[in-house]
Design a binder for these strands. Structure first.
Lengths: 217, 217
DNA sequence: GGCATAGTTTTCGTATACGATTTCGTACCT
DNA sequence: AGGTACGAAATCGTATACGAAAACTATGCC
């Protein structure tokens, strides 16, 4: 079974660097030197440069002319912008996908949410964060508009890259969050109208942002 | 006064090609050949390629591996996706910027809107479309969240590139549109709450989409 | 010691070159 | 005539190379 590499080198470089940013190997502020990355991957600098510029377009890295790229996301203001944008996009995505969510989806989401509750007992913030993403994925992944879905994914990626620096796990907020998840599931189960679901999903994220802001001031 | 070129060649190429797409010189389906564009601009292919990929990320061109780039946007489904996404984003942007809109802004928007009414009399769809963008710019341009504002701009750019092919000017809808504009201005003047403004702005775009869908079926 | 400055190093930006892939045209076979 | 195979042309993908800009360092002056 020979390792079949997928896509162009530019593609591979994009995936490789993005993975390192999202999973935290490259933390915000990390300096991305084209030649170094190219050597690591065994490519030339051209496809690597293309990958970096693409990551810049998604907001994961900051690029400065004739200086270079750094993993972005230290600024709390950016966190606020991202959360606010995501609250809007994700709220819409959840509302649009709600009618397409079946009983199996609900059951899966509920199982994930209960596991999140366990994480609160054993204090496992890392797993909690992962499960949180899994939970919300169930809610928005059936969104029939691919543009909106793409924007949701981008928002989550940015947050993933921020989590180790800006984000701090707030147990109190986490507990509320789990309860809000259950409430969201019941709303969807009950066939609530799109507007109600959208507002609830948006509010859910806004509350997380508020908790963050409250803690930093 | 020597023409001071701004930014890198990649930057210039991006701006040049984008302008040609948005103003309709390159219509949807137009084949973008790297070498040809490079020669036209007097650059090598490398910065041009970077520009094209960037435009791809914004949805203005479609890129196929080992084949090339074409100006995108023929598909009516794409139009639907874009309009739906924009209705959400623009609605939010308008609601967020509403509290920051002053009397001067309102007056300017109202003047633009009255000129749009004139365009209906003289049947000038091109100018109408331009004024329509000007009008909405006043409403969302003060949005304090740059991410959201950026998404609004991207949506408008995509629509601009689509207008000559997919979009057809519908006089009946245009007239309604002007009236809705006035209603929006009054809402903002009256200091309506964010939710009301958001819903109205969103509905305004949704109605345009509906008119398009009604005409094609 | 601190600051300005010149030289060095690092890193980016882009031109050029060439191999890889797709597409298109043409000749051949059935 | 229609389809297939082969070859030529067009176009992309990426490596290499070199010039340009910025960052860093060391040196001399105050």
């Amino acid at each position: 079974m020979t390792e079949t590499v997928t896509g162009s080198k530019s593609e591979q470089a994009y995936a490789a660097v993005k993975a390192r940013i999202v999973d935290g190997a490259y933390t915000p502020g990390y300096r991305l030197v084209l030649a170094k990355i190219a050597e690591d991957l065994g490519f030339s600098v051209v496809p690597v440069r293309e990958a970096i510029r693409r990551l810049e377009a998604e907001g994961l890295v900051t690029f400065e002319r004739n200086v270079g790229a750094t993993v972005s996301g230290i600024d709390p203001t950016e966190y606020l912008y991202t959360m606010q944008t995501l609250s809007i996009i994700e709220g819409a995505a959840t509302a649009l996908s709600a009618p397409l969510i079946g009983a199996a989806d609900i059951a899966r989401a509920r199982a994930v949410n209960e596991e999140m509750r366990d994480c609160l007992e054993h204090f496992d913030p890392v797993r909690f964060t992962q499960l949180n993403q899994d939970f919300h994925s169930v809610l928005f992944e059936r969104c029939p508009n691919p543009h909106i879905l793409d924007l949701v994914h981008r928002g989550w990626n940015r947050l993933a890259s921020l989590r180790s620096s800006t984000f701090r796990f707030v147990p109190g907020r986490a507990r509320d969050s789990v309860d809000e998840h259950e409430a969201l599931l019941r709303l969807i189960e009950s066939g609530a109208d799109a507007d109600t679901i959208e507002k609830a999903a948006r509010q859910h994220r806004a509350a997380t942002l508020d908790a963050y802001l409250a803690q930093t001031t």
